Simulated assay, not measured.
Amino acid sequence: MRFDLVPMPPTVQDRPRDDRGYPVPAITPWEDGEPRFARTDHGRSAECARERLCSVCRKLMPRGPVWRVVGAAESAAIGEALAAGRPYRNLAPTLEAPGHRACMLYASMVCPYLARPNARRGLTAEQPDELTEHVVRGAARGALGAVVGFADYEFAVTSSQVLFRFLDLVEYLPHDTADTHLEELRAELARS
């Protein structure tokens, strides 16, 4: 689905755009006047974590659930836990920051890497470590991503990273291709 056909949350409409018209998420760094979509700006991510701002639109997230988009491995782990009737709790930290439900549904559909299982990463992580060693140019997202809601999040700001942990699963919306979330996004926008 073309990104310009996906309904845009009002909070995203004021975000800066790249040359193609894609809105640039709040935590995306800029280099030489160009956004680097596959990377995360440490200072912006820390600000969003500390001030409870959405990582996509940079607007306040009210107390209560937060959402994020997950890749194939975490989506599979969540699906397996739910199918077995077990609670899902992942204590491993991630660099992926939370956001509003509408913003994450939107991001899952307009980001080429998040939207399709055969999409490939465009960049390799700048300084790969145990959290980013999978961020390699050409790596595919893999089958079954998901938009996932959690009751809350914890974070730690180190000198080089902002680490997040998500607590108490409240919603699991798996997708092979994210355009399956179109009606859910429309309904979420109508509620807000």
Rank of each mutant, 00 (worst) to 15 (best):
residue 180 T to H: 02
residue 85 G to H: 04
residue 48 C to R: 01
residue 41 D to M: 06
residue 163 L to N: 06
residue 150 F to D: 01
residue 175 H to F: 15
residue 61 M to G: 06
residue 156 A to R: 14
residue 132 T to S: 15
residue 12 V to W: 05
residue 105 L to D: 10
residue 42 H to R: 15
residue 9 P to T: 01
residue 11 T to Q: 14
residue 104 M to G: 03
residue 74 E to D: 11
residue 106 Y to D: 00
residue 24 V to A: 01
residue 1 M to Q: 11
residue 153 Y to M: 08
residue 149 G to A: 04
residue 74 E to M: 09
residue 142 G to N: 05
residue 55 S to A: 14
residue 187 A to R: 15
residue 91 L to H: 13
residue 97 A to V: 04
residue 191 R to K: 11
residue 58 R to L: 13
residue 6 V to W: 05
residue 51 E to M: 10
residue 140 A to D: 01
residue 114 L to W: 15
residue 93 P to F: 10
residue 176 D to V: 15
residue 125 A to Y: 02
residue 16 P to Y: 05
residue 36 R to P: 00
residue 159 S to G: 14
residue 121 R to P: 00
residue 77 A to T: 10
residue 106 Y to P: 02
residue 90 N to P: 03
residue 43 G to E: 14
residue 115 A to Q: 08
residue 85 G to T: 03
residue 1 M to A: 11
residue 2 R to N: 15
residue 47 E to F: 01
residue 21 G to S: 08
residue 168 D to H: 12
residue 40 T to F: 13
residue 101 R to P: 03
residue 174 P to K: 05
residue 166 F to D: 04
residue 95 L to I: 11
residue 78 I to C: 01
residue 101 R to A: 08
residue 54 C to P: 00
residue 98 P to C: 04
residue 59 K to T: 15
residue 59 K to C: 14
residue 111 C to E: 11
residue 52 R to V: 08
residue 142 G to T: 09
residue 188 E to Q: 12
residue 3 F to V: 05
residue 18 D to L: 03
residue 17 R to A: 07
residue 91 L to F: 14
residue 108 S to A: 15
residue 97 A to N: 04
residue 171 E to R: 12
residue 189 L to A: 02
residue 146 A to P: 03
residue 90 N to G: 05
residue 55 S to V: 06
residue 110 V to R: 12
residue 68 R to Y: 10
residue 14 D to E: 15
residue 124 T to C: 03
residue 92 A to S: 15
residue 70 V to G: 01
residue 129 D to A: 01
residue 191 R to L: 12
residue 109 M to L: 06
residue 163 L to C: 06
residue 38 A to M: 13
residue 149 G to L: 07
residue 51 E to I: 03
residue 151 A to I: 03
residue 92 A to P: 08
residue 182 L to D: 02
residue 55 S to I: 03
residue 99 G to P: 04
residue 181 H to G: 05
residue 12 V to T: 02
residue 41 D to N: 14
residue 32 D to N: 13
residue 45 S to W: 06
residue 117 P to F: 08
residue 157 V to A: 00
residue 89 R to I: 09
residue 180 T to D: 09
residue 80 E to W: 00
residue 173 L to K: 07
residue 18 D to R: 03
residue 24 V to K: 02
residue 66 V to R: 08
residue 86 R to S: 09
residue 145 G to F: 01
residue 24 V to P: 02
residue 149 G to S: 05
residue 109 M to S: 00
residue 151 A to P: 08
residue 49 A to F: 04
residue 87 P to A: 10
residue 14 D to S: 15
residue 111 C to N: 14
residue 184 E to H: 11
residue 128 P to A: 04
residue 32 D to Q: 10
residue 37 F to R: 07
residue 149 G to V: 05
residue 182 L to T: 12
residue 8 M to P: 07
residue 161 Q to D: 15
residue 28 T to R: 06
residue 85 G to F: 01
residue 171 E to Q: 12
residue 87 P to S: 13
residue 178 A to W: 06
residue 154 E to N: 01
residue 91 L to Q: 13
residue 132 T to E: 09
residue 51 E to Y: 01
residue 66 V to Q: 09
residue 91 L to A: 14
residue 42 H to Q: 13
